[in-house]
């Protein structure tokens, strides 16, 4: 058991336990905190996969923006559902069954693909070169500039749309929105 394997197993165990707590927790603020632990664990896994840039982007986008937004909305809507009312709907057993069946099916599928048992190939490029390649590929006309631009338009649409949706009722939602 090498040290990298140990780190992976520890991180995976913590992340999966935290994910279980997210879906089973009665108190929503605690669920949001467990979600932050899951996101941090996944950032560690990205570092293990030599994708350091993605790890930092994960922390910056998920933990610093999405998780904080979720906690704010939890605080704003906390009167709605206390810890005493039911947290799961009537057919929760069906959902659990579906999850388990899906997992068993996926594992059975993976065991039939020999490529998945392989080890990682050697890392023959520098991290600096990888980062340069990533940057160039996002703006190169022959590579992935189109998904990049479409993603920015999507973010702009989401920005404008969420401001319009959450605008307080009655105070001129027909006014010019600020982009």
């Amino acid at each position: 058991m090498t040290s990298v394997q140990l780190v992976f197993l520890l991180t995976a165990a913590i992340t999966l336990y935290a994910a279980l707590m997210v879906v089973l927790s009665k108190h929503l603020v605690h669920a949001a905190l467990w979600l932050i632990l899951v996101l941090a664990g996944i950032a560690v896994l990205y570092v293990l996969l030599n994708a350091g840039f993605l790890a930092v982007v994960q922390v910056a986008i998920y933990i610093d923006a999405i998780a904080i937004l979720i906690i704010i909305v939890v605080m704003l809507t906390q009167r709605a559902m206390g810890e005493t009312s039911m947290q799961v709907n009537r057919s929760w057993w069906l959902a659990a069954l579906t999850s388990i069946v899906l997992f068993v099916g996926l594992v059975a599928l993976f065991n039939q693909i020999p490529f998945l048992q392989s080890d990682a190939p050697a890392l023959d490029v520098d991290a600096e070169v990888l980062l340069d390649d990533l940057g160039v590929s996002l703006v190169d006309v022959d590579q992935y500039i189109l998904p990049f631009e479409v993603a920015s338009v999507l973010l702009l649409a989401a920005l404008v749309g969420s401001i319009m949706i959450a605008w307080p009722r009655g105070s001129a939602s027909e006014e010019e929105h600020e982009a």
Binding site: V29, G52, V59, I63, D64, I71, A127
Partner: peptide, 26 residues
């Protein structure tokens, strides 16, 4: 000496925001 130092600084600073918010909420 990581090659994404600037982005790292940005993300770690916002964890401080999270801490202050948790302090106020709890």
């Amino acid at each position: 000496d990581i090659n994404v130092g600037v982005l790292y600084v940005v993300s770690i600073s916002a964890v401080g925001t999270l801490g202050i918010m948790l302090a106020g909420m709890s």
